[in-house]
Amino acid sequence: MNKEYAVGLDIGGTHITAAIIDIIGMKVVDFSLHKESFDSNLPVEEVMTIWEKVIRTSIKKSKVENTTGLAICMPGPFDYTNGVCWIKGQSKYEHFYGLNVRDLFQDKLNLSSDFPVLFENDAVCFGKGEVFKDANNLSKKVMAITLGTGLGACFIDKGKSISTGNSVPKEGEIYDLPYKHGIAEDYVSARGLISSYFALSGKKLNNGLEIFNLAKAGDEMAIKVFGKMGEDLAAIVLPWLENFSADSFIIGGKIANASEFFLPVFIQKIKEAGSNVTVSVSTDNEIAALLGATSLLYTV
Rank of each mutant, 00 (worst) to 15 (best):
K92M: 12
Y93L: 10
E94T: 13
F96S: 05
Y97D: 10
Y97R: 11
G98V: 07
G98Y: 08
L99I: 10
L99Q: 13
L99D: 06
N100Q: 05
N100E: 07
N100C: 09
V101R: 00
D103C: 08
D103I: 03
L104V: 04
L104D: 04
F105N: 00
K108T: 13
L109Y: 01
N110V: 11
L111F: 08
L111V: 06
L111N: 02
S113Q: 15
S113P: 09
F115Y: 12
F115W: 11
F115C: 06
F115M: 11
L118M: 11
F119W: 04
F119S: 01
F119G: 09
D122M: 08
D122K: 02
A123D: 05
A123S: 11
V124Q: 13
V124H: 13
V124D: 13
C125T: 08
C125G: 08
C125F: 04
F126H: 02
F126C: 05
F126D: 03
F126V: 03
G127A: 13
K128W: 02
K128M: 13
G129A: 10
G129V: 03
G129M: 07
E130H: 02
E130Q: 14
E130F: 01
E130L: 08
V131N: 08
F132T: 02
F132N: 06
K133E: 15
D134W: 05
D134G: 06
A135H: 14
A135Q: 15
A135G: 13
N136W: 08
N137P: 00
L138D: 08
S139W: 06
S139T: 13
K140D: 05
K141L: 02
K141N: 05
V142N: 00
M143D: 00
M143P: 03
M143E: 09
A144D: 02
